[in-house]
Simulated assay, not measured.
Amino acid sequence: MAIWKGVFPAVTTKLKEDGCVDIDATKASIERLIENGVSGVIVLPMLGENASMEMDERKAIIRAAVETAAGRVPVLSGLAETTLERAKASAKIYQDCGAQGLMVFPSLGYKTDDRETVAWYKGIASATPLPIMIYNNPIAYGVDCTVEVLKELVDTPEIVCIKEETGDIRRVTDMYIAFGDRFSLFCGVDDLIVESSALGVTGWVSGMTNVWPAECVKLFGLCQDEKYAQARELYQVLTPSFHLDTHVKLVQYIKLAENLVYGAPEWVRAPRLPLVGDERDFVVATVTDAIEKLKTL
């Protein structure tokens, strides 16, 4: 079974102004990420507007990512559904499209209790042999894969990794105490990566890596090498931008940042709308400030 580690960007899905998927721009962004040293890519995360995509679009995005990666790094797909049967069916489809793993959301249609959460992940794991990363983001989705829940999933071999996004840094140590190295632990929020690395995470699912892949790979490497003085210097430059990854409009914020840094299309699919006014000015100022400060490092 896969052992994932390193920086795995949650890849934005590039769109045209009319809302159609821009496969060429999406492939170009994935190539840019791989060339700059990421260890894997995750297409169709929340940041990739998964829930706004039709199945034919999802299949095209996964196939394009697999073609672009060409075996250089693993390609995972987000899996976000409302019912278990749809989730199991999608898991099989994504496997057929070439995905080498799944980042599985909780049910989007209902806040499961602990027993139901266990059944959800066990059910999806039964549908395909693909390794699974649990996307644990109770702040956004209201479902928490606590240590007690994970104890019920230890015997499910397909579940290999936890994307830890509770915002409670203590959870990392609690999971290591409970499970040792049974699960790979990934930091799932950009503005906790140095803190999480100090506690032993071996991976990072990152939004702003779409914007600054080389810098984020460098930051993660400094942490892994325990060069925290250097890491903090870079982290302090990037953290105001990393805070953009924690906002409800992170899709718009990160796509605008990509546009500012390397010209990628910033278009989003409704009901999301492009940023305007003071909100846009704030993001532009935040990202522009980081661009200038990075030149001095």
Score class of each variant (00 low, 15 high):
residue 134 I to Q: 09
residue 95 Q to T: 06
residue 104 V to W: 04
residue 26 T to S: 11
residue 280 R to F: 07
residue 184 S to M: 12
residue 150 L to F: 05
residue 74 P to D: 02
residue 113 D to L: 13
residue 269 R to V: 11
residue 251 V to C: 00
residue 9 P to A: 01
residue 144 D to Y: 14
residue 18 D to S: 14
residue 42 I to W: 00
residue 220 F to S: 06
residue 72 R to L: 08
residue 103 M to W: 02
residue 178 A to I: 09
residue 53 M to R: 13
residue 157 P to D: 05
residue 77 S to L: 12
residue 259 N to V: 09
residue 155 D to T: 15
residue 26 T to A: 01
residue 27 K to E: 06
residue 251 V to I: 13
residue 258 E to W: 03
residue 98 G to N: 14
residue 288 T to Y: 07
residue 64 A to I: 07
residue 85 E to H: 04
residue 20 C to N: 14
residue 19 G to L: 10
residue 166 T to W: 06
residue 18 D to M: 15
residue 214 A to Y: 11
residue 137 N to G: 04
residue 119 A to E: 15
residue 271 P to W: 05
residue 79 L to D: 02
residue 29 S to I: 07
residue 145 C to K: 06
residue 296 T to G: 03
residue 82 T to K: 10
residue 77 S to K: 09
residue 143 V to C: 12
residue 158 E to W: 06
residue 125 A to N: 11
residue 234 L to F: 01
residue 231 A to M: 12
residue 290 A to Y: 01
residue 140 A to W: 06
residue 211 V to Q: 00
residue 252 Q to C: 15
residue 216 C to N: 14
residue 224 Q to G: 00
residue 128 T to C: 10
residue 170 R to F: 14
residue 10 A to R: 02
residue 280 R to E: 10
residue 121 Y to I: 10
residue 278 D to G: 00
residue 192 L to C: 08
residue 165 E to C: 14
residue 164 E to N: 07
residue 269 R to M: 11
residue 294 L to D: 08
residue 123 G to S: 11
residue 5 K to W: 13
residue 145 C to D: 12
residue 175 M to P: 13
residue 210 N to Q: 00
residue 210 N to V: 07
residue 174 D to R: 12
residue 1 M to I: 01
residue 262 Y to W: 15
residue 256 L to G: 09
residue 87 A to I: 07
residue 196 S to A: 15
residue 162 I to W: 07
residue 286 T to W: 05
residue 158 E to Y: 02
residue 295 K to S: 13
residue 260 L to Q: 11
residue 123 G to E: 11
residue 204 W to I: 04
residue 113 D to F: 13
residue 234 L to V: 10
residue 247 H to Y: 03
residue 248 V to L: 13
residue 92 K to E: 15
residue 21 V to T: 02
residue 113 D to I: 13
residue 70 A to F: 08
residue 103 M to Y: 04
residue 19 G to D: 08
residue 1 M to P: 04
residue 276 V to D: 14
residue 140 A to Q: 08
residue 75 V to L: 00
residue 253 Y to R: 03
residue 166 T to L: 10
residue 290 A to E: 07
residue 69 A to S: 15
residue 245 D to G: 07
residue 184 S to L: 06
residue 244 L to K: 02
residue 45 P to K: 00
residue 20 C to P: 10
residue 238 L to C: 06
residue 147 V to Q: 09
residue 34 I to H: 02
residue 101 G to C: 13
residue 45 P to F: 03
residue 278 D to R: 02
residue 192 L to S: 14
residue 283 V to L: 00
residue 25 A to L: 12
residue 264 A to L: 08
residue 43 V to A: 09
residue 244 L to R: 00
residue 24 D to I: 12
residue 179 F to W: 07
residue 216 C to G: 04
residue 169 I to W: 08
residue 165 E to V: 05
residue 135 Y to M: 11
residue 205 V to H: 02
residue 96 D to I: 03
residue 71 G to L: 15
residue 18 D to N: 15
residue 189 V to C: 08
